[in-house]
Design a protein around this nucleic acid. Structure first.
Length: 261
DNA sequence: CGTATTTGACCCGCGC
DNA sequence: GCGCGGGTCAAATACG
């Protein structure tokens, strides 16, 4: 059986995100014979801890060769049938916020050498969390850098970038269409030689120039990680390990960056 | 006043 | 080639 707390913790996510063990499939690392990744999406419903955010599905690290599956999984977010609180009431919300006619016409010249965003598929991880707030506190600091309307969805998708120095992690946050009480958070990891690595420190950041200021505080504090993400967890050691692991990984990424340039 | 968010413009890949 | 959709940029704005 799945042990969601143990096997699909943030530490595991990050482990796979950062490529610690690339051969490990997330959904059978406990030697269960999982026939399909979609089995993941059928976690047994567990007792809800208060009415906290309930994370009930995690999705795995997928190698680049499997990114199509990842995309499929992300875009066709199934809902576990055991959830009693599923409501199909689709409220029509501010999709028309994006249809304002008054246009400020100011020209802006973008960098000609933008990185290709679709040519290269980074590992992605989708989390589904039952939550009323869109942007979940996962213990790290993120800067929102964009928001887009999602086709066939009344809910926008928000784009966040990790503000840690040399942390090449981005995430997208959107609300599930099937169940509007579920937030889908998709993490995306840049390679170590990330194109963002050099600029997070403030080089190419427009009017903002102090990204580096937050970098050190991110991992030093014990935050609400276990409360927010491990909804059924009552011990804190897991979250602590997660932080240590992440710290190691980020620092190893940083040192790699230094070595490479 | 410094920092975070908003939001329209822009870029790019892809399908037709 | 063109339009669409997704992702990103960055000036303007909000916020503490």
């Amino acid at each position: 059986m799945f042990d969601i707390e143990k096997d699909y913790s943030l530490s595991f996510l990050l482990e796979t995100m950062f490529g610690v063990d690339e051969h490990q499939d997330c959904y059978n690392n406990d030697n269960t014979t999982t026939s399909s990744i979609f089995d993941l999406l059928m976690f047994p419903s567990q007792q809800q801890h208060q009415h906290q955010q309930q994370r009930f599905i995690t999705c795995s690290s997928l190698p680049e060769s499997s990114s199509i599956l990842s995309d499929h999984l992300i875009n066709n977010v199934p809902v576990t049938p055991n959830l009693s609180s599923i409501s199909s009431s689709s409220t029509e919300l501010a999709a028309d916020d994006y249809q304002e006619d008054h246009q400020h016409k100011y020209k802006k010249q973008l960098k000609p050498n933008k990185k290709n965003q679709k040519g290269k598929k980074e590992p992605r991880f989708a989390f589904m969390t039952k939550s009323e707030v869109d942007h979940l506190d996962d213990g790290f600091r993120w800067r929102k850098y964009g928001q887009k309307a999602v086709k066939n969805s009344p809910f926008p998708r928000s784009y966040y970038r990790c503000t840690t120095l040399s942390c090449g992690v981005k995430k997208r946050v959107e609300r599930s269409i099937q169940d509007t009480s579920i937030v889908v958070t998709t993490y995306e990891v840049q390679p170590v030689t990330t194109t963002y690595g050099g600029r997070v420190g403030g080089g190419d950041s427009g009017g903002r120039s102090h990204y580096g200021d937050y970098s050190s505080s991110l991992f030093s504090t014990n935050n609400s990680l276990q409360e927010k993400w491990f909804w059924n967890s009552s011990n804190s050691s897991l979250a602590k390990d997660d932080h240590e692991l992440l710290q190691d990984m980020v620092s190893s990424r940083m040192s790699s960056d230094i070595i490479e340039e």
